[in-house]
Design a protein around this nucleic acid. Structure first.
Length: 302
DNA sequence: TCTCGATCCCCGTCAAGGCG
DNA sequence: CGCCTTGACGGGGATCGAGA
């Protein structure tokens, strides 16, 4: 009997992602390791489970069958997991350090489910990506969710969601703006020392837009301050623009308080990573909480 | 019976290369 | 160029046997 649930879980993720490299990012191991997991499963069942394609992989008929059995198995395991947590009576509080966007807009949406299905004693607090990883290393938290991975030894990073930074304005602009139009706007900018500002600069560089030539009217340290300022200018005469995560402004867009426009050729996406210490990789709680957050975050991002 | 060192083996990464 | 496989290599846990 194939008892190794790690490999079966890797197979499930490969099936869901339809790519070995994408699955490896989600699992937090290298691509060859994922290939090995699949090979072991294939040699155990003595049949091919996936077709290797140009742009990823597809399940064979046997692969499909195995996948659906595993889906059922996973559901059953989840039920037992709850019982096990009750049984072993772990009572420590699991702390999750996360960035503002995650802590304010994403985690609250999936926390109820994680708490009721996996473990009730979970708390989260907001920190910068650097602080979160620092706290992880100093054992002040068990899990960190960061927008930019500061790759450190002894920490496992698992790819999570993708967040998009969009051009936001306090007045309606034309539907699509050109790169050179950005020089004519009054900008509400972010402190260039912040990681998000660096990401924005990198993307603008690619479009040959010189961020130091933009007319920065005001500069803030936090994205939330940019948002507050733009909202405060809704009634004003002047037009201001800034980059904000789409998740921050969903409600304001709906209520027509703020407006977002596409910049031709610019897709400002940043990946979010869930991180935990290597020595905790076999900790059932950390493993299950991480897994649940990564795969069951029931939110629609865009 | 316990401890400690040698050895084995599993599991992972890295680097190179093949394929479409 | 992106995606996957292969092969070399290393770290670390498990196992085993000798000695106290």
């Amino acid at each position: 009997m194939l008892r190794d649930f790690e490999k079966l879980q890797t197979f499930m993720i490969v099936a869901q992602e339809k790519s070995i490299s994408k699955a490896s990012m989600k699992v937090g191991i290298s691509q060859p390791a994922v290939t090995q997991h699949i090979k072991i499963i294939e040699s155990y069942f003595n049949t091919k489970m996936i077709y290797r394609k140009k742009n990823g992989v597809l399940l064979t008929k046997d692969g499909e069958s195995l996948f659906w059995i595993l889906v059922k198995l996973n559901k059953t395991l989840k039920d037992y997991q709850k019982e096990m947590v009750m049984m072993i009576k772990r009572c420590e509080t699991i702390k999750i350090a996360c960035s503002y966007t995650v802590g304010k807009f994403i985690l609250p949406q999936c926390f109820t489910e994680v708490k009721s299905n996996i473990y009730p004693n979970i708390e989260h607090y907001v920190a910068t990506s650097v602080e979160a990883i620092h706290d992880l290393q100093n054992k002040k938290c068990e899990i960190a969710i960061v927008e930019s991975p500061f790759f450190k030894e002894n920490i496992i990073y698992r790819e999570w969601l993708e967040d998009e930074l969009v051009l936001v304005c306090n007045k309606p602009l034309e539907r699509i703006v050109k790169g050179e139009d950005l020089y004519s706007y009054n900008w509400v900018g972010l402190n260039p020392q912040t990681q998000t500002a660096r990401i924005i600069k990198k993307h603008l560089d690619k479009l040959s837009i010189k961020s130091d030539k933009l007319k920065i009217s005001l500069e803030f340290d936090k994205l939330s301050e940019i948002k507050d300022f733009l909202i405060s200018q809704v009634e004003g005469k002047d037009i201001y623009v800034g980059f904000l995560p789409y998740l921050h402004i969903q409600n304001e867009l709906k209520n027509r308080m703020l407006y977002t426009r596409s910049v031709r050729g610019l897709k400002l996406r940043r990946k979010m990573f869930l991180a935990f210490p290597k020595h905790k990789k076999n900790d059932s709680l950390i493993k299950n909480i991480s897994h649940h957050i990564i795969f069951n975050t029931a939110i629609s991002m865009y």
